[in-house]
Write a protein that binds this DNA or RNA. Structure first.
Lengths: 151, 151
DNA sequence: CAATGTATGTCAGAATACTGACATGAGTCA
DNA sequence: TGACTCATGTCAGTATTCTGACATACATTG
C-alpha cells in the first residue's frame, strides 16, 4: 500500500478523482435503490420522465448516459411492468413520447427520497461556496470535453 | 427539448453534473484508446501497475473501480497477451503480485500520451485556482460518501 | 491451541450495456 | 421531384461487468 512516486500520481489527477467521486456516488445510490428493486439507470429514466414528460427513447438515453439501444430494452421492461406508457404509433416521425403511469410515479417517489438522502450526504461537508465552485468547475470540464468530439 | 420546471431540475444537481462530467471524460478517453485497442479499465490497470508495481488483483480492482472478479478476467487476458506477469504461486498468503512486462510498458506509453491529452483538454478552460477548488470539492464528496457505508 | 473474522483468488451464471445493422421518417438542397 | 443527410426505433449478437459461491490464507481473540 506504499506510494512510490514512479510517474504521475493518480491521486493528483483530477480525472481520476472525478472517476472516484462518480463511482462512489453510483455505489451509494445503488445501495439505496437496491432494496427498492431499482437500478440507477432505472431511476434516472423515471426521474427524467417526471421532470420532462413525453421524452423519447433517444432523449432518455442521452439523459441517462446510455445508448438508445440500452434504454430501449429498459423502456420495454418498464412498459411491460406498467411504470410507463408509450403510444403504439408515432403521431409525427418515429418518435414515441413516453410518460409515467401513476404506478411509475409512486415508485419514483420512494426512490427520490432515497437518492436525495445520498446527495445531501455528499454535499454535507461542503459550504455553499464550495458547492458553487464545484458546479462551475464540472460545467467547465464538460464543456471542454464536448468541444472536441462532435456536437 | 424544452425545459419545463416540474420538480427538481437535474441540471442544478451536483450529482447529475458529476455523472455527466465523468461520462464525458470516459467517452473521450474511450475515443482516444479505441485506436490503440484498449479500454479504459484496461488502461487503468496498466497505469496503476506502472505507478505501483506488484499490486494484487484486488488492489487493482479497487483502483480501477471494478469488482475483483472483473479485474481477474482482465488480468488473465493481459497475462495471456503478455502485458503483465504474475507468479504461479503466492509467496505469502494468496496474493499474487502483478507486474508489467516490457511489452506492457510500451503499450502503456502510447496510451498515456493519448489520455494525457484528454485530461489537458478537460482542464483547458479552468484556471489554476478553479482546478484546486474542484480538487478539494471532489475529495470532500468522496469523503462524505464513504463515511456511511463501510471503511 | 481453537474459533472467529476478514481478505483474497477464482469459477460459474445472470444482468447489463455495448456495437453492428436495418428500415423508416423528416429536413435540406439542387 | 429526387438525392442526400440525419435522427429515430428496433432487432440481433457480443462484450463487459456484476452477484453468488467456494476454498484458502492470515490475523485476532478467547
Amino acid at each position: 500500500m506504499s506510494q512510490d512516486g514512479v510517474g504521475v500520481d493518480l491521486k493528483t489527477s483530477l480525472g481520476y478523482l472525478l472517476k472516484e467521486a462518480s463511482s462512489a456516488l453510483r455505489a451509494a445510490m445503488e445501495a439505496e435503490l437496491r432494496p427498492l428493486g431499482m437500478t440507477v439507470t432505472h431511476y434516472s429514466c423515471l426521474e427524467l420522465l417526471a421532470q420532462r414528460p413525453g421524452l423519447s427513447n433517444s432523449e432518455l438515453a442521452r439523459g441517462a448516459f446510455v445508448t438508445r439501444q440500452s434504454m430501449n430494452v429498459l423502456l420495454q421492461a418498464l412498459e411491460r411492468d406498467g411504470f410507463v406508457t408509450r403510444p403504439a404509433e408515432a403521431s409525427v416521425g418515429k418518435v414515441l413520447p413516453t410518460r409515467l403511469t401513476p404506478r411509475g410515479r409512486r415508485s419514483l417517489e420512494k426512490a427520490t427520497v432515497a437518492v436525495r438522502s445520498v446527495e445531501l450526504r455528499m454535499l454535507g461537508g461542503m459550504t455553499q461556496d464550495e458547492q458553487a465552485d464545484a458546479f462551475t468547475a464540472l460545467q467547465s470540464m464538460i464543456r471542454s470535453l464536448q468541444k472536441h468530439d462532435g456536437v
